[in-house]
């Protein structure tokens, strides 16, 4: 099959790739570009581990075709830390022991980031709703919910 060129911004830097028609963004990110932070848990839109942010919106990269991403701004968990300083969400996940095997963590953090970008002071119910498309085998979710609430408080204190 003919390859198609696609260009987008990944965590602030320009990327250009030739992909086969039908290639998922998940596959392009992990196996062509080498950003392995999005995980493939199910490849069919049911686990959330592959979540990325495209033009500010939460998307499942396993259900997004790479060729449709031309000109977009894509963010993944590997781009969150700035100059070696962890993003408040990453810090909060560590402090709350909200990660064990870590497979769900990048997707959880992406989902939480989109929530906090739109709703800086979410209620517990809003956090639960935002995470409800993401599956975790290990933590029982409560530490993750607590981490997101803590990150939200840290953000609002910095803003104040």
């Amino acid at each position: 099959m003919a390859k198609v060129p696609v260009q987008f911004t990944l965590n602030g830097s320009e990327k250009a790739e030739f992909v086969e028609g039908g290639t998922t963004l998940l596959h392009a990110l992990r196996d062509k570009i080498g950003d392995t932070s999005p995980k493939g848990g199910c490849h069919q839109g049911t686990c959330g581990a592959c979540s990325v942010i495209i033009d500010g919106e939460l998307k499942l990269s396993c259900l997004t075709l790479a060729e449709t991403c031309g000109g977009t701004d894509i963010r993944t968990t590997s781009g969150l830390a700035e100059a070696g300083v962890l993003h408040p969400l990453q810090r909060a996940f560590l402090d709350a022991f909200a990660t064990q095997c870590g497979f769900c963590t990048p997707g959880m953090i992406m989902a939480a980031k989109v929530l906090l970008d739109h709703t800086p002071n979410p209620s517990r119910d809003e956090v639960v709703e935002a995470l409800s498309g993401n599956i975790c085998r290990c933590t029982g979710y409560e530490p993750i919910i607590q981490a997101v609430l803590t990150a939200a408080r840290a953000n609002s204190q910095n803003a104040a």
């Binding site: 049911t46 686990c47 956090v127 639960v128 709703e129 409800s132 029982g140 979710y141 993750i144």
Partner: peptide, 17 residues
């Protein structure tokens, strides 16, 4: 055969623990 049918409690189904 997938996470739609293989069920687990999600973050909205947590018991007070």
């Amino acid at each position: 055969t997938d996470f739609n049918q293989y069920l687990m409690p999600g973050p909205g189904d947590l018991a007070e623990t």
